[in-house]
Design a protein around this nucleic acid. Sequence first.
DNA 1: AACACCTACGGCAACGATTGCGTATTTATT
DNA 2: AATAAATACGCAATCGTTGCCGTAGGTGTT
Lengths: 336, 336
Amino acid sequence: MFVPSTLKDIASALGYSTSTISRALRDTYEISPETKKIIREYAQKINYRPNPIALSLKERRSKSIGVVVAEVANHYFSQAINGIESIAYDRGYHVIITQTHESYEREKINIQHLASRSVDGLLVSLSAETSDTAHLQDLHQKGLPMVFFDRITEDIVTHKVIANNEKGAFEATEHLIHQGYRRIAHLTSSAHLSISIERLDGYKKALAKHDIPFEQDYVKYCPHGGMFYQETENAVKELMNLKEKPDAIFVAGDRLSIDCLMVFKNLNIKTPQDIAITGFSNSDVLDLMNPSLTSIRQPAFEMGQIATQMLLKVIESKYPVYDFEKKVLDTSLYVR
Amino acid sequence: MFVPSTLKDIASALGYSTSTISRALRDTYEISPETKKIIREYAQKINYRPNPIALSLKERRSKSIGVVVAEVANHYFSQAINGIESIAYDRGYHVIITQTHESYEREKINIQHLASRSVDGLLVSLSAETSDTAHLQDLHQKGLPMVFFDRITEDIVTHKVIANNEKGAFEATEHLIHQGYRRIAHLTSSAHLSISIERLDGYKKALAKHDIPFEQDYVKYCPHGGMFYQETENAVKELMNLKEKPDAIFVAGDRLSIDCLMVFKNLNIKTPQDIAITGFSNSDVLDLMNPSLTSIRQPAFEMGQIATQMLLKVIESKYPVYDFEKKVLDTSLYVR
DNA sequence: AACACCTACGGCAACGATTGCGTATTTATT
DNA sequence: AATAAATACGCAATCGTTGCCGTAGGTGTT
C-alpha cells in the first residue's frame, strides 16, 4: 500500500530523534551544519515530503481555499476559477473546486464538507436554488473567512466582488432599444439571486429611460438557472405565445443565453427576424454561433483574482477584520 | 477565529472522557442508552462534526480522490468530471479537481500535491506536454492507486478507460471521404499523446482503405493542445499554404476543433466551400456553430463513471490488485 | 578552579479521533 | 457466599509534525 516516508523513518534510519530531523530540515540554528547535511541528503534521497495532513491538524489551517460555483462547464465560472488559481497558487494556497449544479442541498453539503475539511476560507457564488443562507451565516459567524463573488447575499457582511450587473443589463437592453425594438422580454435565472435582481433593475431602467412601459408578463424566471433544458424551452414558449409577442429578448445568464439559442434553433425561431437577442455570456465562441448573440461579458478572470486577494487578506490577517468592501467591476458589450 | 467543536469540548462539558463521547457517537454497545442519548443530543446541539483531518491522519486515508485534467473549460473534461462526481459522491468520496493547462510542470506539481495531501487515489488524463511519466510511475510503484482516462500511458500498468479513438477517427475520416473529399489533412494535439497516436492511426487506416496516399505534410501537430490560439492558427495557415491545398480537415481534439473554427472565421475561410471539417468534440452547442462541425463525440460522462468505479475498486481492495483492464468505449458520429 | 554559558541534540506533549486494554461496579450463577 | 460474567466507562497509544524544556559535554571567563 501507499505509505510515504516520515520523519520517524529518517530518524530511525540515521539514528537521530524526530525532533532533530524536523529541525534540520527546517534549518534551525540549533543543528550543526554537518548533521544538517547528512539529514538533508538522506531526505532528498528518499524524496521526503512533510505530511500536510499532520501539519493541518497541528496548525489548524490547511493552506487551501474552497470554491463553490454552480458548474465548471460555464465559461464565466471556468474563467473565474482560472483567476482564482492564478492568485492562490502564487501565494502557496491550493484550490478545491466544488459544483452545486444549482442545487441548494448540494451547496449545503459541499460547504459543510469544505469547512470541516479545514479550508482556510471560502469563495462562494450561490446556487440558483439558494435563498436561505443560514448554512453560510453559521460558518461566517464562527469566524470562517469567506468572500462572495457574482451571486452574493446581503445577509452576510464580508467582502464581495460583482460585475456592474445593473449597468450591463441597462446597456444590453438599451442596445436593443437603439436597434428599434420596443417589446423587449427578459429571461432570467431564479428571482432571489442577486444577479437576477440587479439585472432586472438595469432592464427596467433602460425601459423607463425610453418611456417603454414595463410588463410583468415579459419577465420569465428559470428557478434552476437553466440546468434543465425544458425549463428554458417552456419560458421561451410562454413568451412566444403571448398575444403581444416580444420582438426582442434580454437573457440574464451565461448558460441561459446558450440554452436560449438552442431553444430558438429547435423551435425554428429565427433571429433577428423573429426575435432579437442579447445576453450575459462569457463564452469565447459566441462569434461562431448562429443565430449570433450580442453579449455582455463580465471580467470573470479578474473577478476571480480580486475575490481571492480579498479572501487571502482576511485569512492572513492577524486581527479580526471588520472593514469590508464590495468591489464592482464594469462589464463590456460585444455587439454582433 | 474559526474553531470547530471537538470531542474534548463535549467531554469536558458533560463530564465524560473523550473515549466515551467517541463511542457514544459511533454507537458502540458498551455505552448505556441513557448516556448515548445525553451525548448525542448535546453533539447535535453544538453541531459537532468529526474532524476529517484528524481522521485522515489516523486512518491514513482521506476518502477523497484527485482528478488531473487539462482544463475544466473543455466540454469533454467537464462532462467526465460530472461522471466522476456522480459515482464518487454516492460512495462517500470527495473529488479534488486540478488543471494542468496542458503544462508538464503544472502536472507534476498538482500530482505531487494531491499525493502528499493523502488522496486515496488518482484519476489522470495526461497533459499535452507530458511525455515523461516518471512522476506518476514513482507514485504508482509506491502503491498509490491510479486510473488513467482519455490520455493514457502504456508505461504504467493499471486500469485505463479510453474511447475507441482509432475507430472514431476512422469514421470521421471516412465520413469526409464519402462526401467526396480526397485531400484530407489532420490537425492534432502533441505527437506523443495516446489519443493523438490512436486518432492518427484511424485517420491513416481510413485513407488506406480508400487508396488515398498518406502525406506527412497533411498532418499538423499542436504541442500545447491548442492552449495558444496562435499555435492553431499557424498550423491551419501552413496547411492552407501547401501547394496541394487540402480540401478537408480532420481535427483530433475538443478545444482544437473549436479553435480551428475560430481560425477559419478570422482568416475568412469558408466551410465547406473552402475546406470541410470534422472533429472530436463534446460541446453541446455545436449545433449552433457556423461554420458547422460534424463531430465525433466521446461518452465522457460514462468514461468518468467507469474510471471512478475502477479506481474505487482498487482503493477499497483488501489485497494488492494485479489484474488490470483497459476499457474501450465507442464514440458516436454526429453529422451536421 | 569554579562558574556561567554555549552547542547540539533528545524527550515529551499537543493537535483530534479511534481503539485495545484495564477496571470498578453491578448482576448473575452455582 | 464465593465466583464468574457482564456493564459502563477511563487510560493511553497512535497517526506525523512542531515547540517547549531539559541536558550532557564542551568552551570561555575571572
